[in-house]
């Protein structure tokens, strides 16, 4: 058994030198690199966490923006809907007014047409009545008819007021006959008028076939109508008044 102190010293120094060498060139640099990598990884994790937080914030902002867009879209749609409804109401109102105008116009046109038609019918009826009256007159006895009209003339003069009769007596009276009055007829007419007025007025005779039958007296202030034309006119006026009353009702 041997134990060499020189070798003990050599080995102790060798191990110490080896410890120093490895500490200088191995343990410390490698540990520092590990720490650096851990710090780098931590930085990357922190950066990733920050990026994640930033992304979350941006996502929340986008969500809020989307909600705002939705609200704005809803408001625009509501405004457009209200505007469309207002325009529709305005159009309906205009259309109703136009329809009312058209209805009024059509009603007025219909009334005018009915009035025109009625006037036409009345005129045609008058014409027809004149025609019928003319044909009837042609078949009647002329002398009897003249006598009847002379009688009705006397009754008409009798119904006049005294002031009218005086006015007729002092004026020049135009006697309008439906047919040409011969001397005998003029004499009977003059006699009838003089009998009714009490004096013989100044008479002039004229012929108007439109009277159909009968005779009329025309003075400056008094007119006495005694003919079928006058009768037809009165009938037509009465019918017109009746129609007016029914339209007003």
């Amino acid at each position: 058994m041997s134990f060499d102190l020189w070798t003990l010293g050599f080995q102790a120094v060798n191990v110490l030198v080896l410890i120093w060498l490895l500490q200088r060139f191995f343990w410390t640099p490698v540990a520092a690199m590990i720490v650096a990598r851990q710090e780098s990884a931590q930085k990357m994790l922190d950066s990733a966490a920050a990026e994640r937080a930033k992304a979350k914030a941006e996502s929340a902002e986008i969500t809020a923006t989307r909600a705002g867009i939705q609200d704005e879209r809803r408001a625009i749609l509501d405004a457009a809907r209200a505007e469309a409804e207002a325009a529709r109401d305005l159009l309906l109102q205009d259309a109703r007014a136009a329809a009312q105008v058209l209805q009024d116009t059509a009603k007025a046109a219909r009334v005018r047409a009915a009035e025109t038609l009625k006037q036409t019918a009345i005129a045609e009826a008058q014409g027809l009545a004149v025609t019928i009256a003319g044909r009837l007159m042609a078949r009647l006895d002329g002398a009897g008819t003249d006598a009847a009209f002379l009688g009705w003339l006397a009754e008409g003069l009798a119904t006049l007021s005294d002031m009218d009769r005086k006015a007729l007596a002092g004026a020049t009276i135009t006697v309008v006959c439906a047919k040409e009055a011969d001397n005998d007829a003029q004499a009977r007419i003059t006699e009838t008028i003089a009998g009714a007025l009490g004096t013989t007025p100044d008479l002039t005779f004229r012929t108007d076939p439109d009277l159909i039958a009968g005779l009329e007296l025309h003075a400056p202030h008094v007119t006495l109508r005694n003919s079928w034309r006058a009768d037809l006119d009165r009938i037509a006026a009465a019918l017109a008044d009746k129609d007016a009353e029914s339209d007003a009702a």
Partner: peptide, 16 residues
């Protein structure tokens, strides 16, 4: 010691 020194030299170029 020489061998360990060489190994240490091999690891001197440290990278991430």
């Amino acid at each position: 010691m020489v061998a360990l020194g060489l190994v240490a030299l091999l690891t001197c170029r440290l990278t991430q």
